[in-house]
């Protein structure tokens, strides 16, 4: 597929089994990555999983759990905090919400992806990784319909294939990638 877009943002959604994948992606991406990356993962809100701390060790870019109204910057990896929905405005500012659970979860990948579809249109990349959930499917579909580039981890490679497979059941994303191909794509096109 021909890529002729100026990307402004990458959003990644994952659930069960995606932690190692996120780790691997961040480890491979070069320092001073030109656009911000936002990662929304389902995790227990009562437990400090050490998620951010672990990513800080492997990532060559700064890992941040943002505050409301923070401005997303290149060279930064943003982790959606537990127990808040996160949305991104077209001016790159972060909005949080404690509104009702969506798909039985907060944060919801759908909520993040919807906001990115509305704010960035074709200038965003949405990625769905491993997970035992369907959260993120509708959001990625919205991104697709509005012209964003959509990527799904190959279900055959995903530790838990339910989430990437759920995407494939309702839409045909632009790419179905192994992690290796996904990393190569991001390095080549950003």
């Amino acid at each position: 597929m021909e890529i002729a877009t100026t990307y402004k943002l990458i959003v990644i959604g994952g659930s069960a089994g995606s932690f190692a994948s996120v780790n691997h992606i961040l480890q491979e991406l070069p320092a001073r990555f030109p656009i911000p990356i936002v990662i929304c993962m389902h995790r227990l809100k009562h437990v400090n999983s050490g998620f951010k701390e672990t990513l800080e060790i492997v990532s060559k870019n700064k890992v941040v759990e943002p505050f409301h109204n923070d401005l997303l910057e290149p060279g930064h990896i943003y982790i959606v905090p537990a127990n808040y929905h996160m949305m991104i405005q077209s001016d790159m500012r972060v909005l949080f919400s404690t509104e009702e659970l969506v798909n039985f979860t907060r944060p919801s990948i759908d909520v993040l992806f919807y906001s990115v579809a509305q704010s960035f249109g074709k200038n965003a990349i949405g990625i769905i990784l491993s997970g035992a959930h369907k959260d993120g499917v509708d959001g990625l579909h919205d991104m697709y319909k509005i012209g964003a580039t959509t990527v799904v981890q190959d279900p055959q490679e995903a530790q838990v294939p339910t989430m990437p497979q759920a995407v494939l059941d309702v839409m045909k994303p632009h790419y179905i990638f192994t992690l290796r191909s996904m990393i190569a794509f991001l390095k080549a096109h950003i």
């Binding site: 505050f67 409301h68 109204n69 905090p81």
Partner: peptide
């Protein structure tokens, strides 16, 4: 305030000191 509302709330820093962000 909420734990994610933080220092970007307009007017907060002028009137309040941060005890624990």
């Amino acid at each position: 305030l909420g734990i994610k509302e933080g220092g970007n709330i307009f007017g907060l820093q002028a009137l309040f000191s941060t005890y624990n962000k």
